[in-house]
């Protein structure tokens, strides 16, 4: 197969980037998308150029490192598929493929296709945990958790932190990412004790980082490679509003982390 690749090149965070076009030929349909870029990079390096920089590690859709904006969609055309799981058999011979980094104020470009997602980290620092010290846990089966809720919590916890939801959203909102964590803990008894402060702090941190508001267009769910459901956003909103109501009682929920 032959393709024309239009790829975003940007030397560093300060530089102004632009698209460059690269023809690639003899691509096998069995190659994954990133193997195809490896193949192109090898040719670029061997002819004295600088390879395209992109992020990756596991190449099996679980670490959340990779993430390219392909033909106007985060992670490309296939639903529930990360960039590294995408294969060239999904494209047609001769096609022009446009490849860009995530675009969001909260994810500044570092180089070529690599962006800085540390804003996600800070949202997690704000409340993405249950406060329990090593050694203080009770016997695991002493607290039964309904299978239904536990399975739902798992579905929420399957988020890989890739940032596609932000890239897919016209407001660059990170609510699907945050809601997944908030919902995971809100659904199980272990997470209840600090549920209200958690949602409060994580939402505040999203604002601070410059992520936009949610206007319910659901582009995030559509492009999320793990199929994280927007139902979790509704759950988060419920948590958030009830946390606001409880805030009226002074001092009651102002425990330190």
């Amino acid at each position: 197969m032959d393709f024309k690749l239009k790829i975003w090149r940007q030397k560093n965070a300060q530089a102004k980037g632009s698209f460059r076009t690269y023809p690639v030929s003899d691509v096998s349909p069995e190659m994954s998308f990133l193997e195809m870029i490896d193949y192109l990079n090898k040719q670029i390096i061997e002819s004295g150029g600088e390879p395209i920089t992109f992020e990756q590690d596991c190449r099996e859709g679980i670490c959340g490192s990779c993430g390219l904006y392909i033909n106007g969609r985060p992670h490309g055309p296939m639903r529930r598929t990360t960039t590294c799981e995408l294969h060239m058999r999904e494209f047609s011979d001769g096609e022009t493929i446009v490849i860009e980094p995530w675009r969001s104020k909260a994810f500044p470009v570092i180089k070529d296709l690599v962006v800085d997602r540390s804003s996600f980290e800070r949202v997690m620092h704000a409340g993405g945990f249950i406060s329990v010290d090593t050694g203080s846990a009770a016997e695991a089966n002493s607290l039964p958790v309904s299978k239904h809720n536990s399975d739902k919590a798992f579905d929420a916890a399957a988020c890989i932190g890739c940032g596609a939801c932000v890239a897919a959203c016209k407001n660059s909102s990170a609510v699907l990412f945050a809601a997944a964590k908030i919902a995971q803990y809100a659904l199980i008894p272990q997470g209840k004790a600090e549920a209200k402060e958690r949602v409060d702090r994580m939402v505040k941190q999203m604002d601070t980082e410059g992520f936009g508001y949610c206007s319910n267009t659901y582009g995030c769910e559509f492009d999320c490679p793990k199929g994280i459901s927007v139902d979790f956003i509704a759950l988060m909103n419920r948590e958030f509003f009830s946390s606001k109501l409880c805030k009226q009682i002074p001092g009651k929920y102002t425990r330190k982390v």
Partner: peptide
Amino acid sequence: NDVIDHFTALGVPFARDYGGTL
């Protein structure tokens, strides 16, 4: 065994049976 207890307390969603146990 302590590891499983700790993870459960941290909210790790291990598979469960219908009775709610692991």
